[in-house]
């Protein structure tokens, strides 16, 4: 396969950032997208040029490290797939591929395609947990949880924290990410006790980080590699309204 790659380079000799064009002559359809970039980097290193910085780790679609926008879509064209699980058989010989970092005010670019997503950590730190210290737990089977409820909690908990939702959203909103955690914990009986406090703190932190607001576009759901549903956002909205109307608040 022959490809033309237009890749965003930033930092070092590229300063504030610009697109560089690279010709790739030895890609093949069995490669994953990241393996194709590995081959490009090998080529760049052999020419003593600076390789393209991109983040990646597990390459199994679960760690959430890989982050790039491929032809305008976070994680590329394949639905429900992270960049590392995207294979070149979904591209054609002769294609031009434009690769950019996730762009959002709250995700500053560190280098080339690498961005800082620590804002997500701070949202979780604000309240995305159940306050139970080690050793305090009762027997695991003491609280039965309906199978479907557990499944819904799981669906939300499947979020890998990659940030594709933010990258896809025209408003760079982190609502899908935040709502996935709120839903995961709100569905479970264990998470009820501090649910009001949690949702308010997490939304406040989300705003503080400079993410945009949700305009219910649905781009986040469409681009989420784990296909987290926007109905979680509805649930977040409801939880937030409830929390603010509840008596304990005043």
């Amino acid at each position: 396969m022959k490809l033309t790659l237009k890749i965003w380079r930033q930092g070092g000799e590229f300063g504030k950032g610009k697109f560089e064009t690279y010709q790739m002559n030895n890609a093949n359809e069995h490669m994953s997208f990241l393996e194709m970039l590995d081959v490009l980097n090998d080529q760049l290193i052999s020419e003593k040029k600076t390789p393209v910085a991109f983040e990646h780790d597990c390459r199994e679609g679960i760690c959430g490290t890989c982050s790039m926008v491929i032809n305008g879509q976070p994680h590329g064209p394949l639905k429900g797939t992270t960049t590392c699980q995207l294979h070149m058989r979904h591209f054609k010989d002769g294609d031009t591929i434009v690769i950019e970092p996730f762009r959002a005010q709250a995700f500053p670019v560190i280098r080339d395609l690498v961005v800082d997503r620590s804002a997500f950590d701070r949202i979780i730190q604000a309240g995305g947990y159940i306050s139970v210290s080690t050793g305090q737990a009762q027997d695991a089977n003491a609280i039965p949880i309906e199978k479907d409820v557990a499944a819904r909690a799981f669906d939300a908990a499947a979020c890998i924290g990659c940030g594709a939702c933010v990258a896809a959203c025209p408003n760079a909103s982190a609502m899908l990410f935040t709502s996935a955690k709120v839903t995961h914990l709100a569905m479970l009986p264990q998470g009820q006790v501090e649910s009001h406090k949690r949702v308010k703190a997490m939304v406040a932190q989300m705003d503080e980080e400079g993410f945009g607001m949700c305009s219910n576009y649905g781009a986040c759901e469409a681009e989420c590699p784990k296909e987290i549903s926007v109905s979680n956002i509805a649930l977040l909205n409801r939880e937030y309204l409830n929390a603010n109307l509840s008596r304990t608040d005043f």
Partner: peptide, 18 residues
Amino acid sequence: DQAVAQGVPFAREYGGLL
């Protein structure tokens, strides 16, 4: 026990148990 208390959504049966 600890993981369930933290909200880890383990697979369950129809009776709601693990």
